[in-house]
Design a protein around this nucleic acid. Sequence first.
DNA 1: CTGAAAGCGCTAACAA
DNA 2: TTGTTAGCGCTTTCAG
Lengths: 339, 339
Amino acid sequence: MIELVTIKDVAKAANVSTSTVSKVINGYSNLSIETVQRVNKTIAELGFEPNITAKSMRTKKTNMIGIVVPDVDHPFFMELFVELQREFSLSGYGCFVFSTRSEEVHEMDVIKSMLLRQVDGILFSSVGWSEQITQTLIKISERIPLVSLNRIFPHSPIKSVNIDYFEGTLRAMNFLIEKGHRRIAYISGHLGNVAGDDRLQAYRAALGRASIPYLEELIFSGEMDIKSGYRCAREMTRLYPLPSAVVAGNDAMAIGAMKYFKEKGIRVPNDIAVIGFDNIEWCNIVDPPLTTLNPDVRIIAKRVAELMLGEADDTLVLLKPELIVRGSTDIDAINVIDW
Amino acid sequence: MIELVTIKDVAKAANVSTSTVSKVINGYSNLSIETVQRVNKTIAELGFEPNITAKSMRTKKTNMIGIVVPDVDHPFFMELFVELQREFSLSGYGCFVFSTRSEEVHEMDVIKSMLLRQVDGILFSSVGWSEQITQTLIKISERIPLVSLNRIFPHSPIKSVNIDYFEGTLRAMNFLIEKGHRRIAYISGHLGNVAGDDRLQAYRAALGRASIPYLEELIFSGEMDIKSGYRCAREMTRLYPLPSAVVAGNDAMAIGAMKYFKEKGIRVPNDIAVIGFDNIEWCNIVDPPLTTLNPDVRIIAKRVAELMLGEADDTLVLLKPELIVRGSTDIDAINVIDW
DNA sequence: CTGAAAGCGCTAACAA
DNA sequence: TTGTTAGCGCTTTCAG
């Protein structure tokens, strides 16, 4: 089961050369059936398992994909990681995850350790726009497939899979505006971070189209986590009048905000409607269930794998998230769960 | 930044032999200061990075740890993984995660892929008690360090880190009994799974000590996830009278149960008190916040790393979880969050 | 203190 | 159809 038998041992036992064994292992065609059978039998008998490290060294392929996310702890990236792992394992690849902890300073370190591990491909989810990192990534992409999540690198071999945050946020805003909301707050990710910017633009655009003035005071900014949402909500309650709705850059912040509102007796959605982004599992657990945009992690993972493994010709994928209406915006939303 | 410069290039450029470069890299002592400096300078100039694969091949060490959990999706294992990764990276190790999806049938596959990847150590969280797996693990443990989570392998080199589920459950039960609860339900993990058994025993023991009869009808069993908790709660409401408290094998099931109660207008803790196990982040988010047992993931990760890397002499670690009282058992629990 | 040489386990021309 | 040979990039005796 667990041993140290090498290709050499197999060769000797089967009375063939090591290269023949190698060919059998790798399924070459020009081999006599008889030989193949004999070698396979010996392999089974000796319990031989090819040494992947040695193989990697020769072929310069590790069959490992590096996945870089801002935050492994975050439910969205967690769910994404699980799907990616599933997806890549279908093609015989393993996955490493690395977290930049949402800080640009860590991005270079993470890149270094992946390169050190000789990954065959990288999925990179950027935090910021640092020129140095950008150049490094472009350079890397000339050697190994690099797919970027939610950031486009023009004029480079870097392909990208993007959630259409603009469209998503627009949908959320239009939904609220159609319901009559006029005073809508926005809880953004860190401004200047990749995670923050275009969602906020969509917020502005939607207001513009509805001729609602953009008010600086309605914009809050956090770190994409529950705690930040909670804090932003606290800030928000200093406003008078309170906004009638709030859109958050992701579910975690929306959930944090809902928590604060609940503590203060502010009712969701009666006093304030809330919309998140990501459709993480917890949207269904919180009370009321959270209305959100669903980017469909499964599809994302599939597209990423396709681009990475060269199974698709696209170089840029843009995924439009679907609005999922639940109790945090509609008091009588029917939230059927098939449990 | 990203290159293909080898030890050979460095050697040539620095006018030394490859073995000298190797020695410099690995910090050998018997080298003239002058040489070391020159080599280091060249290394920097050429931007040389040692090829870890080649190194692994020679040293037969990959510096990778394999982590096997029943379910990566599960918040508890997620949090554990993050901590383990942090902990092991301190010693220069990377981590793979593998999920057995809580099914014994997948355990062997997972073991195989880890072995194929030549991991230097394994953390294994068992699902069941299969004899075949047991034997395989013992065999592996004779070659590489194997640490088991929550399961003890007597008479083998397998060390283990264990959460004291018995003690924890006892604490939960005693807490409830002291508050006057007599009719206490229990939501267990799958019986026959490692995750299920001793917690249920503690439940029984606590009842026994308080001279409360054990009733089969108060025992429910699920799959350790939210959905299961929800379903068990649904079953439970068929009972008359409703139990005044329920203890769940983990937080996810407790949270699922709370969700069902909420939907049915059964108030927690007024109508029924709820206690979970794990102290995952979401305990603070749900409403009311969930009383639970805290096994301290951070400590677990630390101990695991110690045992794995041979930094501790223990062979068995037993961690007593602390009861954290929140609103799901005490209507006026003060749940201070330092947000 | 430094270098030559052998080899980790495997693959891939190239020959036979 | 099969075997010979030459490494991949690094470490590690062992000589010098």
